[in-house]
């Protein structure tokens, strides 16, 4: 049984499944660094997924679809920013509104745009996207020939590589560039930032725009590679899982990537198990349960650290 599950296919699928969660997670990381809790990632991904797949169908080019998906992600999040920053709507409520648009609203749009009116919830773009529209995969020269590692690491959708590359780029952005310095200071002490003429508003817009860009990548990945087309609720909580991954990774890019991989693992596992004949309704909730358990574990570790600091042993350290 174990061998049937833990093979190279399985590890390949972990990376594939992690990619969209990772995009959203990076969005959450940069947002939180600037003090912006973007819980609208879920809905933003839905909107991007829809328009990405539609434009791909119309233009026949996945690249055009991808660009439109990214554009939509940024647009939606900037709109969110307008309500949250300019009109001072609670950012959480703004996120909830985006998620409403992401579920029912996208279905409305897809019905209107594609003129499919049959049935209640059946409208989708899955019939429009074919393998020819899919975002291409890449067999990495040399690496693909390495035994075991080759089949795991090579042959992924190019966006999967982009996702993991973006972990590094996000770190560089945050810790090596002036923009990153501004983002961190806006998140930590916005008054300090504004007192030296850094526009807190601008930085927050940049941060939420970035998280929208990431959601755009995630949405495009979902509808133009992972599921081949848009359907209702296809993002299935990945935007929310990303928030959990961000928290578990203590808000740092690399740590959050590791947490995202944990969720990828849980989902890959549940898919594998259900393919072995166990009711999918029993195993599909596994990643959601793992998210709760992960958050609990993280909180316990944090609490342990705090307790340690209050213990008598902390006294001895300073005494020396």
């Amino acid at each position: 049984m174990l061998q049937l599950i833990f093979n190279t296919d399985f590890f390949f699928s972990i990376l594939r499944i992690t990619a969209p969660i990772l995009f959203a997670t990076l969005g959450a990381v940069v947002g939180e660094k600037a003090g912006v809790s973007n819980i609208g990632l879920e809905g933003t991904m839905m909107v991007s997924a829809l328009f990405g797949s539609l434009t791909t169908y119309w233009s026949g080019s996945w690249a055009v679809g991808l660009v439109v998906a990214l554009f939509c992600g940024v647009l939606v999040s900037l709109l969110m920013g307008f309500f949250a920053f300019n009109l001072k709507t609670d950012i959480i409520l703004t996120g909830i509104a985006v998620n409403m648009i992401g579920s029912g609203g996208t279905l409305f749009l897809v019905k209107v745009i594609t003129q499919q009116t049959e049935g209640k919830a059946l409208a989708s773009t899955t019939s429009l996207i074919t393998a020819a529209h899919q975002i291409p995969s890449w067999n990495i020269p040399l690496i693909k020939d390495i035994p075991i590692l080759g089949p795991i690491l090579s042959g992924h959708c190019i966006l999967t590589y982009v996702a993991f590359l973006l972990v590094f780029l996000t770190w560089v952005l945050l810790y090596r560039t002036p923009l990153g310095l501004n983002i961190r200071s806006v998140g930590e002490n916005p008054n300090a930032a504004s007192s030296v003429g850094v526009s807190v508003l601008k930085i927050k817009y940049i941060a939420i725009g970035f998280s929208g860009l990431m959601a755009g990548f995630g949405g495009a990945f979902m509808s133009m590679y992972y599921s081949m087309g848009w359907s209702l609720d296809m993002v299935a909580g990945r935007g929310f899982i990303a928030l959990a991954a961000q928290a578990m990774g203590a808000g740092e890019p690399v740590g959050s990537m590791l947490s995202a991989l944990v969720f990828g693992f849980a989902q890959a596992f549940s898919i594998k198990v259900s393919s072995k004949g166990i009711d999918s309704n029993l195993v599909t909730p596994i990643p959601y349960l793992v998210t709760i358990l992960g958050l609990v574990a993280f909180a316990l570790v944090l609490r342990h650290r705090v307790k340690k600091q209050h213990s008598a042993s902390a006294l001895e350290k300073t005494a020396k």
């Binding site: 300019n86 409520l93 703004t94 648009i101 279905l107 409305f108 019905k111």
Partner: peptide, 20 residues
Amino acid sequence: PSQLIDILQAVIFVFFAAKQ
């Protein structure tokens, strides 16, 4: 399509909650 309600709901919602 009746899902227009979700968009209406979201719009009313954000404006109502908007302090500014």
